[in-house]
Design a protein around this nucleic acid. Structure first.
Lengths: 175, 175
DNA sequence: TAAAAGTGGGTGCAAAATCAACTAACTGTG
DNA sequence: CACAGTTAGTTGATTTTGCACCCACTTTTA
């Protein structure tokens, strides 16, 4: 599945513990994926099982041992295999659009409420993404890896911006 | 879950069989949700179980009996409850963005391949949505229900259009 | 100094979703 | 006539996800 590939991708950047993987999902990856920590640890175990990663226990003085996961050659192959296997289709699943689709069951004010609330949430997310982008060194984006990573954030920003415009249009023309 | 609410929404528009629900998911709803038919039938059974819908078996001369599902008053309450419970947050899960994020593992041409392929797929989906919108009577969009339904399609169109623009930008500036 | 938050790693369970097949009749096309 | 497609629904197995909890220790903060 996708999560396993994403984890392989991160392990490809540098060896990591499940804990660190979770942090990456919550910070750098959050604009296009999220994952429960239980799910991460289990997937990690599967990867080791299949020989796509190996564990190295690293003792620390104060903190618990780190279960550092390293990607293997086989893991790298699976990753590049996925990357070159063609563009994955995106699921197209948006509960909020479902609410809008059936919102006619509500009073006009409640519909507006729904849209305004969404507008606020979207603005909040957009602001978060924008501040994330500020933290990116644009000179570093000259190298391909950083460029592509920044590009996915740009994508999320554009999507949120488009959403805001759409929300405003709907609010304006709602009969 | 969301699927149960969406099914209630559709049943609210008119009584339906699981088969017809599946067709709606594949046609009118496909721009923001999709569902496996097994999942639809099982969820339908759950709804009946909980008293949110009732079944009426309608015999047909040539075809198999229709298991017509009707929404109940309790079902209507659950639906409006969901609608007025506030804007649902969307999952933010895009496998393709994952591929882009880690695409630096590939050769430049392979990355371009990935993006071009996605561009084609996106264009295809956009064209589909655009032709769907052509089929909508814009005079009918004066009533609120049709307006909101059309609006979700508009949303999908904007998202796909934004995606195309983004893809073009990435292809142009890819180092 | 007690409580909260961070580091690190789990388990168990239930719901949700997907895949793949299978039944069974009818309709339209070459 | 054979074959593909449509209508209608069902079953079993498996995967994926989400939620809630648990451990143990350390650092920070109120």
């Amino acid at each position: 599945m996708v999560l396993a590939r994403l984890i392989l991708g991160l392990l490809c950047l540098s060896p990591m513990t499940g804990y660190e993987l979770k942090k990456h999902f919550d910070s750098s990856i959050n604009h296009f994926w999220n994952a429960d920590k239980a799910q991460i640890y289990r997937t990690l175990a599967q990867l080791v099982d299949k020989g796509y990663a190996t564990v190295r226990t690293v003792a620390q003085s104060n903190y618990p041992d780190r279960q550092e996961h390293h990607i293997t050659e086989a893991g790298r192959e699976v990753l590049t295999g996925w990357l070159s296997s063609g563009a994955a289709q995106s699921p197209e699943r948006d509960p909020f659009m479902g609410q809008v689709f059936f919102a006619a069951e509500l009073e006009r004010e409640d519909i507006e409420q729904l849209l305004i609330q969404r507008r606020e949430a979207t603005q909040f997310i957009l602001d978060d993404y924008l501040s994330q982008r500020e933290g990116i060194d644009m000179r570093a984006a000259a190298d391909r890896r950083s460029f592509l990573m920044a590009a996915t954030l740009d994508h999320a920003i554009r999507q949120q911006a488009a959403e805001l415009e759409w929300l405003d249009a709907v609010l304006e023309y709602l009969p």
